[in-house]
Design a protein around this nucleic acid. Structure first.
Lengths: 183, 183
DNA sequence: GAGCAAACTTTTCATTGACAAGATACTCTC
DNA sequence: GAGAGTATCTTGTCAATGAAAAGTTTGCTC
């Protein structure tokens, strides 16, 4: 426990997530992070190369979590349930979610990131392909936009929901009624 | 032109917007900004107090521009046109739009910011109140989420649209058809 | 033209990210 | 079980940055 932490990489990722949740990405400090984890200031750099590398790893983890969440919600459940699961993930892992959609903060061509993102996109589009039956090629984009927008607005504080998940359900319901209406 | 710039504040805001559009908010440097504007490194601080103050001013400007855009699109036009105008604004002023929804970067209680935001919210909700006729209290949130999400996804690079505005129209159309179906 | 406030500069300081070089602990082989 | 090699972490250093203090110039007013 002195020199070899055991699983410092994982610990740093967890600390990063909570630090971002508290103070935002902008105020994330590698040195403060290292101090919080009880290691020297160069330890994070060893594991992640640089700050962008750290955030890249967090984003990749986020994409995997999202893919997992979508897969769990996708078995037999409806389109609404998937949308709600998307929002639920964003609210449960706000730091991951935030970083995932800010490529400027990341090494955007990192192989692991690209792979994880690919998996998440796959898990997303499966549900869309199920529903999209007509000539409406933009329905998938609209669905994604709806849930992504709601999550983003809540996380940014623009919307202060009484009960976020109830509202998410109500919002996502607009998708299904739309799809049903079109079929 | 030597000591008194004339309109340095405005010039700095413009430079900030283009700098963010190029490299992202994270890599925005007050000193580099000052150098680009041809002034000393403390000049921006004089006008805006600190970095958050600079971004606060940019966000406030953004909210005013958004309010203006919504007002222009709102006269007699339909709900779809307003949604498209929202997206169009986001794509036209990506730096403003990005900063507006990251309160962590701002002095969130700044009076001018609060006022400008209030105006923008007002301009937004007017259109919603027109359409919302039934008991669907969440329709406004859904509308906002849809266009905000689409704009965000395009700006983050998650969606690479062939023609963003055409797609925005198609996406926004989901709103109206929904509203019509409910009435 | 003297005072005065606004606008900007120069200087300084603590913090930060990144890097280089060194120290320590684990592991594998023989 | 001992030595070699490697992964993991530390210490020290550097340039860049945001912020603040103190000084300088410009324009306005009376």
């Amino acid at each position: 426990m002195t020199y070899h932490h055991g699983d410092l990489r994982r610990a740093l990722l967890a600390q990063t997530a909570s630090a971002i949740a508290e103070d935002g990405v902008a105020r994330l400090s590698m040195r403060a992070l290292a101090k919080r984890a009880g290691v020297s200031n160069a330890a994070p750099t060893y594991h992640f190369g640089d700050k962008a590398g750290l955030l890249t790893a967090l984003a990749a983890e986020g994409f995997d979590l999202l893919a997992e969440a979508m897969a769990d919600a996708g078995d037999g459940q409806g389109h609404v349930a998937r949308g709600v699961a998307y929002v639920e993930f964003a609210l449960r892992c706000p730091s991951h979610f935030t970083v995932m959609f800010q490529p400027r903060l990341l090494h955007d061509d990192d192989p692991e990131l690209v792979a994880a993102r690919q998996r998440a996109w796959g898990a997303l589009s499966v549900g869309v392909d199920e529903v999209r039956s007509g000539p409406d090629a933009d329905f998938g984009v609209a669905s994604w936009s709806l849930v992504h927008g709601y999550a983003t607005l809540v996380l940014s504080g623009a919307i202060e929901p009484d009960d976020a998940l109830r509202q998410a359900r109500a919002v996502a319901a607009h998708l299904v009624s739309e799809a049903d209406g079109r079929t």
